[in-house]
Design a protein around this nucleic acid. Structure first.
Length: 284
DNA sequence: TGGCAGGGTCATA
DNA sequence: TATGACCCTGCC
């Protein structure tokens, strides 16, 4: 892989296991949109454009310094996905899913944004989840003016803890409005924070997150996997259940059993397995 | 055009 | 441990 500064950004050449469509559509991110000549994302108060050119990818509206301090970690650039896939593919059943989503990477996203985004995701569909997040950002987030136009950052915890429930309802949050407000308060008070979560074991972190209203096992696993590097997390949703039933004959087994099965089979790589299975399943 | 299902969670029994 | 309700809206 070669990384170099260009006039318009940072160019990545010969990067393996990297497919923007798969990365942005494997269920982990809600704020990337397809533009006419690439992808536009609002990430940590910044707007990034990702464009495929000359057999590589250019990250526009950024520089080398910011690449090293922000984007390399965000895109998980330095992780050896080849090794992960080789290890997981020892299990024949998941091989096809890995080949299908071979360009997936697990993004390192903002803890607070993931927490609220996945509370919103409960019993909801993806287009609507994205719409709610956009409206919350527009209503409560900082405006970002970039060469690509005007965007709005994801609102901070103070903004949402102070928001009127009525206004959250107007953004389309529905019954999740009070969960968002209360969880925002818990984050604002420091009761729940990335600082605490990051140094905890997976199990401890899970138990802390479960104290937040609107956060069950699945939502907590998403937050831990997508923002805290807890790769043993295995978010178990209806899609993954379907995939696991088909691949491993787990029909009729309950969530506890399926999670135990995944832990046994995928171990510390369970989160990566989940992403390959999810993307493969929703793409059928 | 109406009715269903949707990246689950929570309360109740 | 198992059901049903739940805001709202895409989508068939």
């Amino acid at each position: 892989m070669e990384i170099r500064q260009t006039a318009s950004g940072v160019f990545l050449k010969d990067i393996e296991h990297f497919d923007p469509i798969q990365i942005f559509e494997c269920g982990q991110a809600f704020r990337w949109v397809k533009a006419k000549d690439g992808f536009l994302g609002v990430v940590r108060g910044r707007v990034l454009k990702l464009k495929e050119i000359d057999g590589g990818f250019e990250l526009q509206n950024t520089c080398m310094e910011e690449f090293q301090s922000v984007w390399a970690q965000y895109f998980d650039i330095y992780r050896d996905y080849g090794a992960i896939k080789t290890e997981l593919a020892k299990d024949d059943a998941i091989k096809a899913a890995i080949d299908f989503g071979s360009g997936i990477r697990i993004l390192n996203q903002d803890f607070w944004e993931m927490l609220i985004s996945f509370i919103i995701s409960a019993n909801n569909n993806i287009p609507r989840i994205k719409g709610i997040i956009e409206r919350l950002s527009f209503r409560y987030g900082e405006k970002i003016t970039s060469s690509e136009g005007e965007f709005y950052a994801f609102p901070d915890s103070l903004a949402l803890s102070c928001a009127a429930e009525e206004d959250l309802l107007r953004c389309g949050c529905g019954y999740r409005a009070r969960y968002i407000k209360e969880t925002a308060r818990m984050v604002e008070s420091g009761e729940v924070s990335f600082e605490r979560i990051k140094d905890m074991s997976y199990r401890e972190a899970l138990n802390l997150l479960l104290k937040c209203p609107g956060v069950g096992h699945k939502v907590a696993d998403c937050v831990l996997l997508f923002s805290a590097g807890k790769y043993e997390a295995f978010p178990l949703d209806v899609w993954i259940k379907r995939a696991m039933e088909k691949l491993y004959g787990l029909n009729g087994k309950n969530d506890v059993y399926i999670r135990g099965f995944a832990k046994e089979r995928f171990g510390s790589l369970a989160g990566f397995a989940q992403q390959y299975l999810f993307y493969s399943e929703i793409s059928r």
